[in-house]
Structure formats: C-alpha cells, structure tokens
Simulated assay, not measured.
Amino acid sequence: MTQLLFYGCLFFAYSPTIVFFLMVIARNSQLVIMSIGGSFFWLLSMLLASIWWYIIPPMRTQFWFVIPFTIAFQEAFRYLFFRLYSWGFNDRPSLAQIQSKINQMKSMKADQLQQQQQQPGTDSVINTRLETLSARPNHTLSSAAIGTGSGITYAFVMYGTIMWESQGPGDLFSPACPDVSLFMLSAIYALCFSLLHILWNVTAFQGYRTKNRIDVGIVLVSHIAISYFTMLNLQGGSCAGAIVPAILITLFMFVYTFRTMLRGDSITKIA
C-alpha cells in the first residue's frame, strides 16, 4: 500500500477521537482517569468474550453466534462501570454545596466565625475539598470520557493490526468488494465504531440514571445491528450494504444522543 493511502487511512480512522481526547478529555485529570478506566473495562469485556469463544468450539467458526455474546459482555461491563461511577460520585457533596457552605461562613457574625476558625483544620479541609471538586466534570463529560477510552482502544486493537499489515508493498481487498481496499474499509469501520462507543456511552449512562429503557434499548439494538451488518463483508456479501448502514447508524446515534442531552439539559450544564 502506498504511503499516501496509509497515512490517509490512519488519520481518517483515529483523528476525530484523538482530537476530541486532546481538546476536551486531556484538560481534566479526572476525565483522563475515567477514559483509562473505560479502556480497561472494554479490554476486560473482550478478554471474557475471547475466553467464551475459546471454550465453545462452534463459536470459533460461526461468527453470527459470536456477536450476541460479545455485545452482551460489552454492555454488561458498561453497566458495571456505571454502577462503579455512581458509587464513587453520587455520595460526594457537589461543588455548589461546598460554595454555599463557604458563603454561609462568610456571612456569619465575627464572633461566630472566629469561634469556628478556632477548630483546627476546618478551613483547610473545606478549601481542599473545594479545590478537589472545582475540576469535577459533569455526568455527560464523564460518560463521554469513558466512551472515548473504549472507542480509542477499540480502534487501536481492531484496526492497528490491519494497519501494521499495510506496510507491505501490495494491497489487500475485501472478499465482498474486490475493487475496494480492505484498509480503507477498515478505516471507515474504525471511525464509526470509535465514535459510536462515545455516543453509546453517553446515551446508555443517561438511560441508566433516568431509568429510561428506551435509551438503553436504542444502544443495544444499534450495537447489534451494526455488528451484524459487518458480516456482509464476507464472501458473497456486499461491502456497500455494510458500509452505508454503518454510516447511517452512526449519524442516527449522533442525532439521538444530542436529543437525549437536550432532554436531560446536559448541553447547558456543559456550558
């Protein structure tokens, strides 16, 4: 494969998610940690899916049978991460509560303020807590950071090996489309799935918080649909019939996630 096609596929597959990570996630240390956590949990789901694939011989050749179990492991670990995230954040006092407490202290009478300041460590504890929570992201950014970790890890794991093989002098074509480079098709899939992991995570976390089964169902159905559409790239299938639905599902999730954020007032909270 030529260097022009190599770098074109490389930037096409990874640029959007990496730019989003550098421009949004990397500016907050807590978001970076949650992004790493999302990557780790996705790898754990793939590890369990691989073990499940190995111990059941029929799954090694029947791809249509592998997909539901792989998605089930991913969604189970997504919900597990949500429970862990809720346990770590929901019981903590918010920044507004800490600031309200400080404003109340400032409005106290001089003698009462002086009496409270005599207690050792009171101000230092509150100030430390305020500094800790001042960079605390909201739920939407947190879920997007977790999805970014999963999406970038997916793109590197699933597409990195294909890109490595592209360093040779020849080219490789899809069985369903002998005239289209497999590296270019894989770059499109890597882009769609990496973006979808972010959108799925934002929508799913919103659904978990509000107990909205429709949001969770949309994530599950779209995940299953785009995964099965990829099987059209096998011999006898149609790569156009696989690529077009993948792009349409990605666009649909963009619109649906945006509407979900508007419904939950997440847009104004980010601003």
Rank of each mutant, 00 (worst) to 15 (best):
G170K: 07
F252D: 08
S35G: 14
L172M: 09
A242R: 00
N212G: 04
R92V: 15
W52D: 09
I33P: 06
P120Y: 02
I270H: 14
T70D: 03
M163N: 03
T128K: 04
T148R: 10
G236Q: 07
L248D: 01
K109F: 06
L43C: 14
D179Q: 05
L113Q: 05
V180F: 08
D179T: 05
L232N: 01
G237P: 05
T61W: 04
A13T: 02
F81P: 00
A96H: 15
P169K: 12
I67K: 08
P120M: 06
V255A: 13
I226H: 01
T203M: 04
I146L: 13
G241H: 06
T210S: 14
V125H: 10
A240Y: 08
D91M: 13
T260F: 07
T128Y: 02
Q115H: 10
L248K: 04
G147Y: 10
Q112S: 03
P93Q: 13
F156L: 15
L48F: 15
L44Q: 00
F183K: 03
A271E: 13
G149H: 13
C9E: 02
S181C: 00
D179A: 07
S86C: 11
Y189P: 05
V216A: 00
A271Y: 15
V180Q: 03
T2K: 02
Q114S: 05
F6D: 00
V180Y: 03
L262W: 14
